[in-house]
Amino acid sequence: MELRHLRYFVAVAEALNLTRAAEKLFIAQPPLTRAIKQLEEEVGVELFIRKPRGLQLTTGGEYFLEQARQILNKVSGTINDTRRIAQHRKTLFSIGFVPSVFYGQLPFMVRRLRRNKNLEIVLHELKTREQVDALKAGKIDIGFGRVRIEDPDVEQTLLFDEPMIAAIPAGSPLTKRPPTLKDLSEWPMITFPSTPGPNFADMTQSLFHRYGLRVNVMQQVNDVQTALSLVASDMGFTLVPEQIRRVHREGVDYMPLDDHSITVPVIASRRKGENPNAVMRLANTILDELVENRLTGRYP
């Protein structure tokens, strides 16, 4: 399979017409038709349903389209990063992160690293599972997430446990006192992300199940910002890490939980067995300082 096959497929999937796709790609239709057929044979499934008035994506085709776009975007981003690094003769240091860890001290780490004029810092928003894959592929140098994932090629370090809090519609009866899990279980819940686990949504729902409580999940969304928007719309509550307090959203109140032992981890992931270079040693030094600030209550 070549990258051109993916580009051809995306063009056809977006146009749902071979003639229009061929015109967009500036190629003749017969070689485009052959390329799509070759791709289907290699993948082993039909990606399109042929109809008299055009094409329709199969279920497999819809999934393949999403993945093909991601692959092409990653290739394009890698090429651009490579050109930028070559032009400036800088060392590239790539960081993967889940959004909920970027409201605390991580931006200060990035800012400190950027003081080194010989460094080019690249950030990638990735789920923890994606961070592990990106580390193994060499796409990132360090990742920050919240989920434990066993992989022989990656080591994970617990930085600290962060209290969980509830984001609640402003004026709700739940804001009168720190709510218990039982209190919350009686209200609609919004979870994130909505992608396959293990993820933060699994962690929050398991809290209720651990105490024999049933939770009414009324909406699953992709990110914390959307979850907070739904909370502000009085659609329900959501559980978030404490550092999300820094996101000031009208219509949302943040409440500590009645049980202060309910926490969520912040985890750093690195390639296992790799001797840290000068940049990684610098990053580790900064990270140690930031973690110490967090553990001792000294916030920057």
Rank of each mutant, 00 (worst) to 15 (best):
A86Y: 11
D259A: 04
S172W: 12
A268G: 03
R210Y: 11
F97P: 00
Q67M: 15
R111I: 09
T82L: 13
H209W: 05
I262G: 11
V240S: 00
V43L: 09
I286P: 04
G171D: 11
R89K: 14
G236R: 02
Q225F: 14
R34D: 06
K136W: 07
F192C: 01
Q105D: 14
P188N: 02
R210T: 12
A13D: 05
T78R: 10
Q225L: 14
F26D: 15
I244H: 00
L213R: 01
F192R: 03
P99R: 09
F102N: 07
L230K: 09
D81R: 14
Y211C: 07
V240Y: 00
V217K: 01
P169L: 12
T285G: 07
F237G: 00
E2C: 14
V215W: 00
E250H: 12
L126A: 00
L228H: 03
L295S: 05
P178R: 06
D223R: 05
M235R: 12
F160E: 02
D133C: 12
F97Q: 04
L123P: 10
A15K: 08
T33H: 13
P178L: 14
P107G: 04
I165Y: 03
D202T: 02
S269N: 03
R53N: 10
Q131C: 01
S100P: 01
E292N: 13
P193V: 05
G145N: 09
L290M: 04
F26N: 15
D81T: 15
P256T: 09
Y103H: 08
F192P: 00
T157H: 12
D153C: 14
D223F: 02
M255A: 13
T157M: 11
T195E: 08
R245T: 11
K139Q: 15
R146I: 10
Q131G: 05
A68Q: 04
F160W: 12
L287A: 02
F9R: 01
A28E: 15
L6D: 01
R69V: 14
T226C: 04
E42V: 09
E40R: 04
F48W: 08
E120T: 08
F144C: 02
G77M: 08
K24G: 13
G251C: 10
E274K: 10
V215D: 01
L113I: 10
P152F: 04
L25G: 04
I36Q: 06
V75M: 05
P256D: 11
A15S: 09
T59L: 15
Q87H: 15
P276K: 01
R7F: 04
R115W: 07
T180E: 03
M218T: 12
V98H: 01
I262Q: 09
L106W: 00
I244T: 05
K139W: 15
V264L: 04
D202H: 11
F102I: 01
F237H: 03
P276N: 03
K176A: 15
L135C: 02
P300K: 07
I71L: 14
L207P: 00
M109S: 13
A170K: 15
E42Q: 14
D253K: 04
A167G: 09
E41W: 12
G297K: 13
E242L: 09
Q219Y: 07
P276L: 04
L55R: 02
S76W: 05
F160A: 02
V110C: 08
R210W: 13
K182M: 09
E46S: 12
P241W: 00
I190W: 03
D223L: 01
D141T: 12
T238I: 06
L72E: 03
V154F: 07
V12W: 01
I165H: 08
I79K: 04
L230D: 01
